[in-house]
Design a protein around this nucleic acid. Structure first.
Lengths: 126, 126
DNA sequence: CGGGATCCTGCCTGATACTG
DNA sequence: CAGTATCAGGCAGGATCCCG
C-alpha cells in the first residue's frame, strides 16, 4: 500500500498528483476496498466482515476499520447488548467514492488481457 | 502501498473488489502516479523525471518505471547515442487511466475539509 | 461478540557507491 | 546520462494470546 505517513505536500511534483495520492492513500492497504464494498451494501457487523473479506486477519480488520472510521468513511455503532453488537455503515462520502471506483473496474476489465500480454512479453524478454 | 505480490484471486470477497484492487495495485506505490502524470504530458527523459518527481530516489524511479513499463503503461525508448538518451511515453491505456483518476481528485478536494474534521474529532475523542 | 496487546517477519524504501 | 549493486531501516501485515 501507499505508506500512510507520507507528508504529501513535500514530495509531489504537482498539486494534482497530491490530491490523487490523498485519495489513494485512503483506500490503499490490502483490505480497505473490500471492507468498503461490503459496507456500501448496508450496515455490517464485525464478524460478517471477517467472513466476507476472505483472508483478512482479525487484527487487520480492526485496524482498517479504525482508519476508515477516522477518515469519516464508516460509522461505527455499538449496541450495548450482551453479547455486544457493532455495526459499520458507509457514509454518503464513502458511497460517493465507491461510485468513482466503478469506472476503474471497467478500465481494469477492458485492459486485463492487454496488461497480461504486456507482462508476458516483458518477462519473456527479460 | 498495497503490496504488489498479492494473489488477489484468493483473498477478495467479491469479483468487483478484485478488479478494483488490480487497478489500485497498478498505480499504488509512492511514486507511480507522479510519474504517470509527467509522462502523460509527453515523452519524458529519466533525468527530467528525477527532477520533476520531487523526493524520489534514483532507485525507486528506476523500479517504478520498470513496473509501469511491464504493465504496458509506459513505453521505454532508447536512443543509442553518447551519452545515452531514454524517453518514457505514456500509452493510450495509461492516458485513459489518467482520465479516470481525475474524478477522484475532485472527490478528494470536495471532501478534504470533511475528512480533516472527521480525523480531528476522532483523534480528540481517542 | 468484538476487539486489544504483543511478537515476529518480509517487503518497500532510502542512502550511498559504482558503471557503460 | 541512465542506470545497477549493496547495505540498512521502518512499516504493513500475520500469528497468537488475552479480555469485557
Amino acid at each position: 500500500m501507499v505508506q500512510r505517513n507520507i507528508d504529501v505536500s513535500e514530495q509531489v511534483s504537482d498539486s494534482t498528483a497530491c490530491t490523487v495520492l490523498q485519495v489513494l492513500e485512503r483506500v490503499s492497504g490490502k483490505w480497505a476496498i473490500g471492507i468498503l464494498l461490503e459496507a456500501a451494501r448496508g450496515p455490517v457487523r464485525f464478524t460478517e466482515l471477517e467472513r466476507a473479506v476472505k483472508g483478512i486477519s482479525r487484527r487487520m480488520l480492526t485496524l482498517t476499520l479504525r482508519n476508515l472510521e477516522r477518515d469519516g468513511l464508516l460509522v461505527r455503532t455499538v449496541y450495548p447488548t450482551v453479547p455486544p453488537k457493532v455495526e459499520y455503515t458507509a457514509t454518503d462520502m464513502a458511497r460517493e467514492l465507491y461510485e468513482l471506483l466503478m469506472p476503474l473496474t471497467s478500465w481494469a476489465e477492458r485492459h486485463r488481457a492487454a496488461i497480461a500480454d504486456a507482462r508476458a512479453v516483458y518477462d519473456r524478454t527479460a
